[in-house]
Simulated scan of single mutants.
Amino acid sequence: MSIQDQFAQAQADSKNLPERPDNMTLLKIYALFKQGSSGDANGERPGMTDFVARAKFDAWAELKGTSQEAAMQQYIDLIEDLKNAG
């Protein structure tokens, strides 16, 4: 199974986790997904009044320079850990 196939499977699995992850883990999931699917963060950083979008953007921006394949693998590993924690 290719890394893209595993990434797609992990994305599907993320919707059926045994329990909802905490906010920091959700940010990490989001950031790894964005880095794995889109590469480095781009666009403008959301304004200070949009706390959620700003936090998501910052989490994604922290992964700058991480290859898409490495981010995919980290995403897959994180989702697997969360699936098995339940």
Rank of each mutant, 00 (worst) to 15 (best):
E69F: 01
A12P: 13
Q74S: 13
Q74V: 02
S37H: 14
N42F: 05
D81F: 14
T49G: 13
P18D: 07
F7H: 03
Q11W: 04
D5E: 15
Q68C: 02
L27F: 09
R45P: 05
Q4C: 12
P46M: 02
P46E: 03
A61V: 08
M48L: 15
K28G: 05
P18Y: 09
Y30M: 05
D22N: 13
L27W: 03
E44M: 13
N84E: 12
K64Y: 09
Q9S: 13
S14C: 02
A85I: 06
T25Y: 01
M1D: 13
S38R: 11
F7D: 03
E19V: 14
E44T: 09
D22H: 12
F33D: 01
D81Y: 07
R45I: 11
K64P: 00
Q68R: 15
Q4W: 10
N42L: 04
D13T: 08
I29W: 02
Y75R: 07
S14Y: 06
G39T: 02
R20M: 11
L26S: 03
L32F: 01
E44P: 11
K15N: 12
A59F: 04
R45Y: 07
E19K: 13
G43D: 04
S67F: 00
G86Q: 09
K15I: 03
L78G: 10
D5G: 07
D58S: 08
E62H: 11
T25V: 10
Q35G: 05
L27D: 06
N23A: 15
I79F: 12
G86D: 13
G47D: 15
I79S: 01
G65M: 02
G86I: 10
P18Q: 09
K83N: 07
D77Q: 06
